[in-house]
């Protein structure tokens, strides 16, 4: 991963603005997918409202921004993430009382409630969405971070992506991560050891939502526009495909999933036009069939075995919402 981030650090030296913006977009989706995998892969909680946190942070940024004045990056980011954390705490506290398919349905319902809140009301411009005319700016002494600048934005996205990866890795290496994984493996056994399973899952749910919010905030800043589609179940499903495609066993797996999925989509759109989705679907099916552990299987087959012990074996299905 260090090599990958180091390479990304030097990317601006060899590519132009278009590719920098494209790479930044991929990294933001990578953050979204990595954060979802904290729930899905390590917590056994398949959430279908993850995009709601992604979109919500974007909406908060636009709504708290003065129309013709650059918003303060730190202040607006903190507000956006605080709102996301609060909403995630409420949704998590209610949905984590359910298990299995019911957890999926409840999170889907909450996600759609937020979608329709912005789609069917005038809060955020309805179905047309709402524009962000001036991008966030941070001035600290002589240092100025202006997200309007593609290079600056790319570096901010890169730092956030690296920090997200580091945070999840650190969390999973701590006793908290062990408790989360143990609860996924066997909820009752974990409880019998005194682990407060509900609280552990709720914290993981909130942390992952805040990270999705960070990606959503930056995504809104990048495109200068937010729309209800950012919160919808379709976006959550795309993030889930990235997770499955990249593999759930390593923290960085979903990041690779995001890279492959977005690059594949772009290439297919260029060469196949309207029919791109047909091939896109076929490639995803093929990848899932031949690499059931995700793209990480390519590395697993080539790297020493010890690198891939951290989570469930390939044949172990994801436990939705933990075992009863």
């Amino acid at each position: 991963m260090a090599a990958m981030f180091a390479t990304a650090l030097f990317l601006p030296l060899v590519v132009g603005d278009y590719y920098l913006q494209f790479a930044a977009k991929v990294m933001l989706l990578g953050i979204l997918a990595m954060s979802l995998n904290l729930n899905v892969g390590f917590g056994g909680m398949v959430s279908l409202c993850h995009a709601a946190f992604f979109g919500l942070a974007g909406y908060v940024l636009v709504l708290v921004t003065p129309e013709y004045e650059a918003p303060n990056l730190v202040w607006t980011l903190l507000v956006a993430l605080a709102v996301v954390a609060l909403v995630a705490a409420v949704i998590g506290a209610l949905s984590l009382r359910t298990r299995g398919i019911y957890f999926i349905m409840v999170t889907l319902a909450f996600g759609e409630m937020l979608y329709f809140l912005f789609h069917d009301t005038s809060i955020g411009g309805g179905s047309d969405g709402i524009f962000l005319y001036v991008k966030p700016l941070l001035t600290l002494g002589g240092l100025s971070i202006d997200l309007e600048n593609p290079l600056t934005f790319y570096m901010v996205a890169l730092v956030c992506c690296a920090l997200s990866w580091a945070l999840i890795t650190h969390l999973l290496a701590s006793p908290f991560g062990d408790s989360l994984t143990a609860a996924r493996d066997n909820e009752r056994r974990a409880m019998s050891l005194g682990i407060p399973v509900f609280a552990v899952r709720l914290v993981a749910f909130i942390v992952s939502a805040v990270m999705a919010g960070l990606a959503g905030y930056l995504s809104a800043a990048q495109f200068g526009f937010v729309a209800p589609q950012m919160l919808g179940w379709h976006m959550s499903a795309v993030a889930l495909v990235m997770v499955v495609l990249g593999g759930t066993r390593k923290v960085a797996g979903p990041l690779f999933g995001a890279v492959v999925l977005v690059v594949l989509e772009d290439i297919l759109k260029i060469y196949l036009g309207e029919q791109w989705k047909l091939v896109y679907g076929g490639v995803i099916v093929a990848l899932v069939l031949f690499l059931p552990g995700g793209l990480q299987d390519i590395l697993r087959l080539t790297l020493p075995q010890g690198w891939f012990r951290r989570t469930a074996p390939v044949t172990q299905p994801i436990v939705v919402g933990g075992k009863q």
Binding site: P175, D178, R184, D185, A190, S192, L193, I195, A312
Partner: peptide, 19 residues
């Protein structure tokens, strides 16, 4: 418990330290 119930995806040390 009967049937042991170790957490298969955690290492020996992680199984111990988490408790």
């Amino acid at each position: 418990p009967e049937g042991r119930g170790v957490f298969g995806s955690l290492s020996v040390i992680e199984n111990l330290v988490m408790a």
